[in-house]
Design a protein around this nucleic acid. Structure first.
Lengths: 239, 239
DNA sequence: AAACGTTTGTGCATGTTTTCACAAAGCCTG
DNA sequence: CAGGCTTTGTGAAAACATGCACAAACGTTT
């Protein structure tokens, strides 16, 4: 009934939560749950029920008042909205420690992001097979990307090589990049960049640890309700 | 002059950016830059200059008008604020693919988070050495944690084991947890939790890819300025 | 077919984060 | 030491995100 295409824009904070709902809904579907309330889903996802409802309302009015949401239908709608109705093969740049771990991590391909290729600049790594995929040379990245029509690249190189990796990915035609290095990369306008920095996550935790320590020392009182509910956020960049 | 301890609370969004500034400042210091403006730092960190100034203002008034910030002093102040004046050893639960990659990742220890222990529930993994640390059995986690006074734990198990891992960590006395599994974990009030979910990051990118594809198809116009500047965010939880 | 209990969808208030814009404060030059 | 140039620090506005609270909508029971 409502317009099927021309969706209104979904807030970024909601986009970041939809994958979590999707996972929980998938699990529930697996164990035979056909219907779920915002309250139940909120519990599973670790958020507030009103937030669940508002988030889902951006997809359309797919719930039934007094009843809840049809799990299977909701899974379908979220997948559609997130663009997960087909696989998105990814190319990994860097076949070192991290690149190999990522390639070997099944939860990757399982969730619709099969490793479509791995490249490295180091000849000694080229030819070896990690996670069932043969490592090719960085110079061949364009062929790898085009052969499988890849649009997402993952940077798993040392930090110093990150910008080169990004440039190679963009030149090869990739339009989204997930950067695991601590280096901030510059990309042309229109390329999406996501970033995962392990050290940053730990440093945020350290801040809370330290704060806890100070608070305990300074005053006993405040520990009753005020303890941190830390949330983290990271920047994507697009030039 | 200003109170040295008893800091005002720093917004969570700022806490998440301080580590990025810290890294950039460290690099600049290495190459001999003694002074930096908010504009320059903003450029390096990929954010807006006003944001840099406001973020830094939470630390105190450490800049000089007309000049900028003293790099070395700022590094010191940020480190102090984040609680990085001493090391925070971490214990890794799970010596599989990911746990090994994390243990072997030097950027970890280099940044003040040495791997103080690795535990696994699987006897066949116990005793092996990864990243210079011998894997011990999950049952010994309490000794590992207490021997090195560890307060940060990293969960690198399969998703199904995440809650058990969290429970073990908490029981052992850990107060901050970084969870690499897709499972949402429940912890007692007062425990900080950070989460890194690779699949979620990729799904966010997929959303933007798909959106780009739709936009291109629907109308040619909007590509001129409006392309996404995606930001991601993840939840921390605390019960 | 009315009354009831449940649960959605959303308007509104509140809280947080970003951005703007400019006075205040510093250096430098003449 | 005055005038000009630069850059910080921060109020205030705007944008964004969260959470409350309740009317509207549904199924069920009588």
């Amino acid at each position: 009934m409502a317009a099927q295409r021309s969706r209104r824009r979904i807030p970024e904070a909601t986009v970041a939560r939809l994958p979590v709902y999707l996972r929980m809904l998938g699990e529930q579907f697996e164990i035979g749950v056909a219907n779920i309330s915002s309250e139940e889903l909120a519990e599973l996802a670790g958020v507030n029920a009103a937030k669940v409802r508002k988030d889902l309302s951006y997809l359309g009015s797919y719930g039934t008042r007094g009843v809840g949401y049809d799990v299977e239908f909701l899974v379908y709608q979220i997948r559609r909205e997130l663009g997960l109705t087909h696989d998105w093969p990814v190319v990994i740049v860097g076949a070192g420690n991290l690149g190999q771990a990522l390639a070997g991590y099944n939860g990757f391909g399982d969730r619709g992001f099969p490793v479509g290729g791995i490249v490295d600049i180091d000849d000694s790594k080229v030819g070896s097979v990690v996670g069932g995929v043969r490592v090719r040379h960085l110079d061949e990245i364009k062929q790898v990307v085009q052969a499988r029509n890849i649009s997402i690249g993952v940077i798993a190189t040392p930090g110093a090589a990150a910008q080169d990796a990004a440039d190679s990915l963009v030149a090869a035609g990739v339009t989204s990049i997930l950067n695991f290095t601590p280096t901030v990369i510059n990309v042309p306008h229109g390329i999406s960049v996501g970033k995962v920095d392990l050290a940053v996550e730990l440093q945020i935790l350290a801040y809370h640890e330290q704060r806890r320590a100070n608070a305990a020392q300074g005053s006993v009182v405040r520990s009753l309700s005020g303890l941190s509910i830390p949330g983290e956020s990271r920047r994507g960049a697009s030039a």
